[in-house]
């Protein structure tokens, strides 16, 4: 018989809940149906903590923390929705829109995009900051997939899923600061990278239109993060999945 998981009392925005002692604020909030916006976090993958969308405030502590990387603690007082947090999240969303070329109207994932959803959630009706209009080279060398770094938010889900779940480690981040860009292989065209297994997990988990199937038109691309989460969770637990279940998810 499995041991029962220990629990702790926490509060989210003034409401008391029970959380598992060994889970993160993010996992607890998801389980309890409390919406904390996030982009780089993906259940089953290692925690990256880079997008900073999920910052929360613990009691009166002025140092905000990412929910994804903060373990719950007994009697933790978690605030997820203060005016200050809302302002920060909106600003971060604006920063993401301003640094890339996120033209929803012509994007393959228009209508199926986590970044677009976050913009709605955070109330971003315009971007206060100057658009950077980068001109990064699109990699269409892979026969099946396409990578548009201008739509990439450097969440590194692709890096992590490829390394941790598929075990191929095709993806990596190169350069730094605003030049930081995702690269395949040793910064070579994706189509020439032999270690790529064409599994498509990177494409499945991309929260924006940066990774897509070839030949998709505006709004035609649908990511399948749910399949990867199922795979990753099952793998972490050492559990087998019925192929029929996966087929159905597809």
């Amino acid at each position: 018989m499995r041991e029962r998981r220990a629990t702790v009392d926490v509060s989210f925005d003034g409401v008391e809940y029970e959380a598992y002692a060994d889970e993160s604020v993010m996992d607890a909030s998801r389980r309890l149906g409390i919406g904390i916006p996030s982009l780089c976090y993906l259940e089953g993958l290692s925690v990256w903590g880079g997008c900073r969308m999920c910052v929360v405030q613990i009691a009166e502590d002025h140092r905000l923390r990412p929910a994804c990387a903060t373990p719950v603690a007994p009697d933790m007082e978690i605030h997820t929705d203060t005016p200050q947090l809302r302002a920060h999240r909106k600003a971060i969303t604006e920063l993401l829109f301003a640094e890339g070329n996120h033209v929803c109207a012509v994007c393959v994932v228009n209508g199926n995009c986590e970044l677009q959803d976050v913009a709605v959630d955070t109330g971003m009706d315009h971007v206060r900051f100057d658009y950077q209009s980068p001109q990064r080279e699109i990699d269409a060398s892979h026969p099946k997939y396409i990578f548009d770094p201008n739509r990439c938010i450097v969440c590194t889900r692709c890096v992590r899923v490829c390394h941790e779940i598929e075990g191929a480690h095709v993806w990596d981040v190169a350069y730094r600061g605003s030049e930081a860009v995702l690269v395949t292989g040793m910064n070579q065209p994706w189509g020439t990278v032999d270690s790529c297994t064409w599994c498509g997990k990177c494409v499945a988990v991309c929260p924006t239109g940066a990774l897509a199937y070839q030949g998709r038109a505006v709004g035609e691309m649908q990511h399948q993060t749910d399949i990867v989460i199922r795979l990753a969770m099952a793998r972490n637990k050492g559990e087998w999945i019925d192929p029929a279940e996966l087929e159905e998810m597809r």
């Binding site: 033209v103 109207a105 012509v106 658009y131 001109q135 201008n150």
Partner: peptide, 20 residues
Amino acid sequence: VSFGDCAVSGNVTAMRNPLG
């Protein structure tokens, strides 16, 4: 009122911006 994506963000009209 900024009416529509082009007014709000530049949108398709601004897709020439990366070209300088």
